[in-house]
Amino acid sequence: MSDRGHAARTHPPEGAAALVQGDALDAARVEALLDLVPPRDRETRPASLARAERQRRRWATQVVVADELARRACAERGLKPPEAVGPPRLLAVAEEDVAGLGSIVAAVLAHSPAARTLLSALEDGQDVPASAMRDYYDRNRDRFLTREALRRGVDPFGDAAPTDFLPYPYVREGIGHELRLAAGRRAFFAWLDGARAGVVYAVGHEHPGDPAHPDHEHRH
């Protein structure tokens, strides 16, 4: 293949935000998401405002790229995400989700039905051994105190009696559910890291934390 053809395959064309698995991702999808996201920073100085907007576009590009990758992963796995209902709405992401997932992944899951569908499938596919559930119960005794023990201020790692704890059979199902969710999230993070490793970004759409551009910041 000629150098010209090779360049066409490895650099996003004009009007594209990135190449995803060799296909151009329309920059208009990034702009459409930005219309749904309020500015993150309340800067007033022109230089600071311009920098904040550049980073906001890079952040939005990551969300749109992840949505595209999730759509493709769902198609490959025979998963059918739900259709969007109604016009696009302002994208709102809960602060606790940002704290637990990072702003990019939290926004991906809020924005992308395909990402939510894929995450749900990954959660459902986790096999949590009975030994792991029992070990979680034994290591996190403070989470399983009875209401009466909590009212009395019982030290779960001190002088607590067996009757101060909810019985293991009573909480086993909930523990299994929680561990499956956690394992599913780890699988989703691993999938996303691997899937976007080969994405090629256009100038101005790089990852916000990419040290190759002068405005980089490591803030997820």
Rank of each mutant, 00 (worst) to 15 (best):
M1L: 15
G5K: 15
G5C: 13
H6N: 15
H6F: 14
A8M: 12
R9V: 10
R9L: 15
R9M: 13
H11L: 12
P12M: 02
P12N: 02
E14K: 11
A16I: 04
V20F: 02
V20T: 06
Q21C: 14
G22W: 05
A24Q: 02
D26C: 06
V30T: 09
E31N: 10
A32F: 08
A32K: 09
A32Y: 07
L34N: 05
D35G: 08
D35N: 08
L36T: 13
L36A: 13
R40G: 12
R40V: 12
R40D: 14
D41S: 13
R42E: 15
R42I: 10
E43C: 07
E43Y: 03
S48F: 08
S48C: 05
S48Q: 11
A50G: 00
A50H: 02
R51N: 01
R54N: 02
R54V: 01
Q55S: 08
Q55M: 10
R58A: 03
R58M: 06
R58E: 01
W59S: 10
A60H: 08
T61A: 14
T61K: 04
Q62R: 12
V64S: 08
V65S: 06
A70V: 02
R72E: 11
A73Y: 03
A75Y: 01
E76W: 04
E76F: 07
R77G: 10
P81E: 00
E83Y: 00
G86K: 01
G86I: 03
P88Q: 07
P88E: 08
R89K: 12
L90E: 15
L91R: 10
A92V: 15
V93P: 12
A94W: 14
E96F: 13
D97W: 10
D97M: 12
V98N: 12
V98W: 12
G100Q: 11
G102R: 10
A107P: 11
V108T: 14
A110P: 10
H111Y: 15
H111Q: 12
S112K: 05
S112L: 03
A114M: 02
A115C: 02
R116G: 07
L118Q: 03
L119A: 05
L119S: 06
E123F: 06
Q126I: 04
D127N: 07
A130T: 03
A130S: 05
S131Q: 02
S131Y: 00
D135Q: 08
D135K: 09
D135N: 05
D135A: 08
D138I: 01
R139E: 01
R139C: 02
T146Y: 00
R147E: 14
R147Y: 05
R147F: 08
L150V: 07
R151D: 13
F157L: 10
G158A: 04
G158Q: 05
P162K: 03
Y168A: 00
R172F: 02
R172P: 04
E173R: 14
E173N: 12
G174L: 06
I175T: 00
I175L: 01
H177A: 11
G184F: 02
R185K: 13
R185E: 10
R186V: 03
R186L: 03
F189P: 01
F189G: 06
F189N: 08
A190V: 04
W191I: 07
W191H: 06
G198L: 09
V200E: 07
Y201A: 04
G204P: 01
G204K: 01
H205P: 04
H205G: 05
P208G: 07
G209V: 07
D210M: 06
E217Y: 09
E217D: 11
H218V: 15
H218S: 14
H220M: 13
